[in-house]
Amino acid sequence: MRPFSYVSAPDVATALRAVADDPGAKFLGGGTNLVDLMRAGIEQPDTVVDITSLPLAEIGERPDGGVRIGALVRNSRLAAHPLIRARYPVLSQAVLAGASAQLRNMATVGGNLLQRTRCPYFYDRTAACNKREPGSGCGAIGGFNRGHAVLGVSGACIAAHPSDMCVALAALDAVVEVESVRGVRRVPMASFHRPPGETPHVETDLSPDELVTAVELPPSPTAANSRYRKVRDRASYAFALVSVAAALEVRDGTVTGVGLALGGVATTPWRARRAEHALLGAPATEESFRRAAEAELAPATGLPGNAFKIEMARRAVTATLRRLLTEGSPA
């Protein structure tokens, strides 16, 4: 790991100033991703600004009935919080499906939003990777790509977004609150992560000096009937091949509310708008679910290693909606 200087910020203003003054500075939260990337030589900050002392670790109810989650709330606390379990079970399940209990005790909500891909070519400094080293090429396109994306891909990058939490946040229409010395702004999840296009190294809408301070969940009656389904190569402690965050509201056999997002299959946490559109107002049947899934995956493009994800995602979407319809919420 490249040596760096360490600053522990006592308050938000100090933290923001520290990065505004130093383009080589990085915020350090739980460290579960950044420390790993620094050890692998992928991230090489000059200064690490430790933000874990900032007062951003609260979860509270908002006046409108929504919930505000501080950026430094640990993943395990988020999943266990009564408001999240009862009103947004998909978020609780998504967080619990990620990593291990030890990592969830360390990892923060803000850090999880900024989690970087697990693409092996990104992690291997001897390999070509446009994300790590713009212009160097993509090792994955002609190499191992079983874990890679089929949606939102470009000729420059097919790396899958690794987060489970973000998939649930996408389905829930969450809004990310960010702050810098220039002030506070709010970014909807839908535009927080950026598809790779020709600039795969640009992964989010954040400027380098901006700090995620909170995530807000809007009130949603649909969200109470929601669940997360993760398909992976072993029963626990593995990244998703395909994951589905789904919220479903059905009245008199008709879909009246739906939130759907996919993980493991896309370069960003993938809001499934086409499927949602196909479902709203449609009869809540296996056939509608299947048709919605097909609509969502229609633009997907697979490679020999990962084309299976297209059918796997269709099936996982259908099965998750079916289960929500028949069994209801896990809350």
Binding site: R118, A235, S236, Y237, A238
Partner: peptide
């Protein structure tokens, strides 16, 4: 990325 069995398996 090399998946040895975990407890849950």
């Amino acid at each position: 990325d090399y998946h040895v069995p975990v407890h849950a398996d």
